[in-house]
């Protein structure tokens, strides 16, 4: 697996942009390219790039339908037909493990979203590995071969996936550490492309890519004998049920959820029951202020 630096990841993500926007992206200062988190394209407005402190315009002409079409073509490798199921979810994972989120006019098939009839905006997330991101908090999750079931929370864009990836890698690579089963429903953690992971998730990690989380948990339990199951963004009741079942089998869980605080989490029925079940032993809250991240740790009980 090839390891690339932060600027190189930016440059690779920029290959998904149409030619003229790619040129503009290359004009961004090197240190900003290393920190840039996303490209944003909206029909009728100049393209922009997202830094930790906020979104900035790239200037130039407004984005056109043709340019958005370029992005879709580049992201799918001119293979919309084989990416339909992902597009129905509103995103596609492009070569290099970059998630491209899409908005526009949605076509319905039997009442369910069936893909886009036209695209009006795109968000290209520049995913990066941050080896060592877990150093501030790993001591509270993993020690001497033992793992504590941990929930990592933050609002969207807080860095949960990046942190989860590094925690998984750390535990998986640790001498005498457990096997990790990874449920990567949206191909963001291991970032599979063409059947291969593009991000390092550790040598003892077994990944189920593109599989709904609840099903993935059951499959891993039945077939891969994991000591730890990791999953990103618990949102559904069935995800919570699967996690609880796994915990009752003696498996430790490391998961993430969208929330700014424990109290906000507890307001949602799915999490209320999960918190009450005692599955998680540790809570890690990621806070972002002025582009900098801080971590607060709480024991769950």
């Amino acid at each position: 697996m090839e390891r690339v630096g932060a600027v190189e990841r930016f440059d690779r993500a920029a290959l998904l942009l149409p030619h003229n926007l790619r040129e503009r992206a290359r004009e961004i200062k090197r240190e900003e390219r290393a920190a840039c988190e996303e490209f944003r394209l909206r029909l009728g407005y100049p393209a922009s790039f997202v830094m930790p402190e906020g979104e900035r315009s790239m200037g130039g002409d407004p984005v056109t339908k043709r340019e958005l079409g370029f992005v879709l073509e580049a992201a799918t490798g001119a293979s919309v037909h084989s990416a339909s199921s992902r597009l129905a979810e509103g995103f596609i994972t492009a070569k290099g493990g970059f998630r491209v989120g899409l908005c526009g006019a949605v076509g319905l098939s039997e009442g369910e979203p069936g893909g886009f009839t036209s695209i009006s905006s795109a968000a290209i997330r520049i995913s990066r590995e941050h080896r060592g991101a877990c150093v501030p908090i790993i001591g509270s999750i993993y020690s001497g071969g033992a793992v504590k079931s941990t929930l990592i929370i933050s609002p969207p864009g807080g860095g949960k996936t990046t942190l989860l990836r590094d925690v998984v890698r750390y535990i998986s690579d640790a001498e005498g550490g457990p096997r990790v089963g990874l449920c990567d429903e949206r191909s963001e953690i291991a970032a599979f492309f063409d059947g291969e992971p593009t991000m390092d998730v550790g040598r003892r990690t077994d990944t189920l890519d593109g599989c709904p989380k609840a099903r993935a948990v059951n499959m891993l339990l039945r077939s891969m004998n994991p000591g730890v199951i990791a999953l990103d963004e618990i949102t559904a009741e069935e995800d919570a049920e699967a996690i609880t079942r796994a915990a009752h089998c003696g498996v430790k869980l490391i998961a993430t959820a969208h929330a700014a605080s424990r109290s906000e989490l507890a307001e949602r029925p799915t999490y209320r029951s999960l918190l009450a079940s005692g599955v998680f032993e540790e809570l890690i809250v990621i806070r972002k202020l002025g582009g900098r991240r801080s971590y607060a740790r709480e024991a769950m009980y």
Binding site: E73, A78, V80, H81, G114, G115
Partner: peptide
Amino acid sequence: GLGRYDRETV
């Protein structure tokens, strides 16, 4: 049309 539409349309 190839690569731009769903499989039924293609």
